[in-house]
Design a protein around this nucleic acid. Structure first.
Lengths: 280, 280
DNA sequence: ATCGATCTGGAATATTTGTTCCACGTTGAC
DNA sequence: GTCAACGTGGAACAAATATTCCAGATCGAT
């Protein structure tokens, strides 16, 4: 009586459904495969649409949707749709909303925990900002400048230093020649003196700008070494002496600015440079 | 004939509706005020629910919802609901979805741009993971261990080093005594030899673990210096010699793991430690 | 090629859901 | 206190939406 092809119990949450679909995708009939693909590609559509509208844009019959749902153990299409909706509800909430949910759920957040969540929130916001702020062309130009360099000089102090030290680590693994400027005291200027126009510099500095970084970037620029920089304002001293520069404004929490956006940009730059070189 | 109380044309998007509601909230009849409050407080409910279910949880009649919608120029409840839904769609979209929107919107993403977005996505995911993964009690214990230390020894190599270098920067600004272990070659062990049980160590290491970091953490532990660590697995060599440890699994893109979650945790720890000390 | 099993499309049906309508309350002006 | 205007609840209605059903198509095994 019971159909063996249909799982007895429906997946409890969206992730479970997703894996179930992926697992059984192979041995699903043609139209159901079609629905499966559509569902995973357009989850929002399924959450909001009506059976009829979804069926139309997935090029199937409404009944096929019902069959699809039943194949995965639901009563009907509505049961399946519910999963897509609750997923949306949970996902949707902004970081602040999610925090509020956390607070309501468990005991009230301790001060420390709210600190952590504050920094996480700031990082999220930073990342959101940068996603739209970096133009692809600009990025490409920066990559091509740096990929063409024999040696890349990394200039960063204080708060920016962790970023350059990450780049140094990654460049090392990717076999890209670099010099980390500013680690050991004193020899920086000697190091910079070796740079030629065939090299390039990547300078990072955020307000309040370390005067040392700006000075070093200017030295490089004066010697015709192309400079690419990452800073937080068009009025930054770095902007004026750079062939190409990125403006990244990090969100802050408790007076401490995030580094996430800068870090993501730095990682992307690093990998893109290595990738470009590998091709040549 | 035409009712002056209802605006002729309905708000075009959610924000417009929101302001409209806020503006007219004062001179709205009792039940409609009730709906207005409910709508702004539970936008998700309105987006997903049916008129009946919403009416019930807002303690009004379904017809009131319709009247409410009509007061703001909509044909009926459905028109109003649409605004709540599209808002959700736009807000909700996951990072991947947003990327897809970006792709569709502008020209196709260049390879470099998609790299950047990939890293941004990985960072977002990492942050999402850590938000739920760090228990408040554990965090508190770690803070109290480190806040009680005279000097905090920061142990990190390679990929973890940017994190410790950020902490070093922040500790410096916050006037917390620390020693960054692992910068200059050779003298590390001598530095560690000066540590006493009144100090503490914070070690960071991710797979593949730098054997040096593990060794140094063990040395500290053997000398009864409390060790707090940040690592990515319960089987990490750091876990076994730590008084307290955090497991943070970073998402990756193109084989490069994010640092955002670790960085956020590190920042929170740092500030919490300074804050705790300030109180004493 | 034939048969059986399974899949598919589309119309018919049942259910849910939004909307309308009207009698009853409530409020405020005179 | 009366009246008019407006607000409210709830039931009746209409529209939409999901589901069921079945005849015909498709596919695979023999």
């Amino acid at each position: 009586m019971s159909d063996v092809a249909t799982s007895a119990q429906p997946p409890r949450d969206f992730e479970a459904l997703r894996t179930a679909i992926l697992e059984r995708r192979q041995d699903l009939p043609k139209r159901l495969t079609q629905v499966a693909a559509y569902a995973l590609d357009n989850p929002d559509e399924i959450a909001f649409g009506t059976a009829a509208s979804i069926a139309m844009s997935a090029n199937v019959q409404p009944s096929t949707l019902v069959r699809f749902a039943q194949h995965f153990g639901f009563d009907g299409f509505s049961g399946l749709q519910l999963l897509f909706r609750t997923r949306l509800r949970e996902r949707n909430s902004s970081y602040e909303d999610r925090l509020r949910q956390l607070e309501q759920g468990g005991a009230a957040l301790t001060e420390s925990a709210s600190l952590l969540h504050g920094f996480i929130g700031a990082a999220h916001r930073s990342l959101d900002t940068i996603a739209g702020a970096v133009e692809a062309e600009r990025f490409e130009r920066a990559v091509s400048i740096l990929a063409g360099a024999e040696t890349i000089y990394l200039i960063a102090k204080r708060r920016s230093y962790p970023i350059s030290s990450y780049m140094a680590y990654a460049f090392g693994k990717l076999k890209v020649r670099f010099q980390l400027v500013g680690t050991s005291a004193g020899i920086d200027d000697d190091m910079l003196a070796m740079a030629t126009p065939q090299d390039a510099a990547f300078a990072i500095s955020f307000s309040p700008y370390a005067s040392e970084s700006a000075r070093q970037a200017r030295i490089m620029a004066a010697r015709d070494v192309p400079v690419v920089s990452l800073t937080d304002s068009a009025f930054s001293p770095l902007a004026e002496c750079s062939r190409e520069w990125f403006e990244v404004v990090e969100a802050d929490h408790a007076g401490f600015r995030s580094l996430s956006a800068s870090m993501a940009l730095a990682m992307a730059l690093t990998v893109a440079i290595a990738e470009t070189r590998r091709r040549k």
